[in-house]
Nucleic acid binder design. Sequence first.
RNA 1: GGAGAGGUUCCCGAGUGGUCAAAGGGGGCAGACUGUAAAUCUGUUAGCUCAGCUUUCGAAGGUCCGAAUCCUUCUCUCUCCA
Length: 381
Amino acid sequence: MNERIFQTTHRDAGSKARTGVLSLGHGDVVTPAFMPVGTNGTVKGIYHEKVARMGYNLILGNTFHLYLRPGLEVLSRYSGLHRFSHWNGNILTDSGGFQIFSLPGLRRITQEGAHFQSPIDGSRHFFSPEKVVDIQHVIGSDIAMVLDWCTPPDIEHGEAVKAWKMTYDWAKRSLARRNELGEEFKGCLFGIVQGNFYKDLRKESAQALSEMDFPGLAIGGLSVGEKPEVFKEFLEYTAAQLPDEKPRYVMGIGSPDYLMEAMENGIDLFDCVLATRMARNGTVFTDDGPLVLKRSFNEFDMGPISEGCQCTACRDYSRGYLRHLFKCGEMLGGMLATEHNLAYLHDLVEKARQAIREDRFIEFKAGYLARYMSNKYKSGK
RNA sequence: GGAGAGGUUCCCGAGUGGUCAAAGGGGGCAGACUGUAAAUCUGUUAGCUCAGCUUUCGAAGGUCCGAAUCCUUCUCUCUCCA
């Protein structure tokens, strides 16, 4: 059942970075790979067709959201999310653990699972690890994630122990449920490492999950409000505990600098809402740092966001026009910016893969970040 | 020509003697955003040598300890009637 889904194709000579191929139900994914987030079965502000044409073959959906809307009956009648949403590539679904974590006051976690209230209508629901596997089975996820308990920074050691032990127990139950479904369950199920910001717990969690029958492992509970140095320290530490032969996925990171850190540490997958959310809010990635399109200095700028970028925004429109769209609240602005940010990250990761293949990832990263982090467009303040 | 209403800080618009540099919108400017309760949220928006001081509510005078608020004149706008 647990066939090998990942092959490393090259290892960078100067770091732990690696390239590989992930073979999933809807085609291969070259790694490292960034995964755009499409929580509700749509990557906000862009056609699936464009996402696919850009080169993305693995996007996210969210168990929590899709269970609440449109609900399992609809998804089941459509034979899953691929057909429902007309996406022919791969889909990874997050379990909803992060959403439940994000609903303080609306949730209660017990050994059995998570009780929560819908943020849509206040109705009460319950997710057990088994049920979450079942829902993702209905969705038809190519990669399903176990239900986990994500914790914020600055919690007590004792509480962090409780959370990761719970996540571990839930992981075992998730696997058991997957095994019950047998061949019917077409996707692969990934485990999630927790352990908060305690190295002993990260290590225990990573080792415990590594010994289990998961075809891939994720690092959860990072980028939840901790400082960048802390993120980096725990990313590096935790990644090193994971088995080399399985794909490693860091959940929820998407700024260029975080992606670089992840790739350097041998991470193969990452996803984030940042690119698409920032885009809708008017900020685009450039090699010189993030650019807020609404800012006044763009008014007469007839150049593209990024020279050489192949996206529609850069190909057909100027910074001045994009500024105008955002100032008018025109939805095209958000759509174009979304396309740009996704194209930008795709290009960036492709450049990184190329650097890895040529054993020069460290120089590539240093050169890129020196320019990106100088943040040319940051205001004086 | 007659009757009435009114001119408030970039705009709209509250405010009818001190607690008003003046509510609230809008616009402007800036900041944030990292497994999406987000096409969202936050800050700021007279000037200065920002504690404090100076100028500001159509204009000019006046009353008062004190005026965006009261009085006089002027000016402009709008509505209705001729």
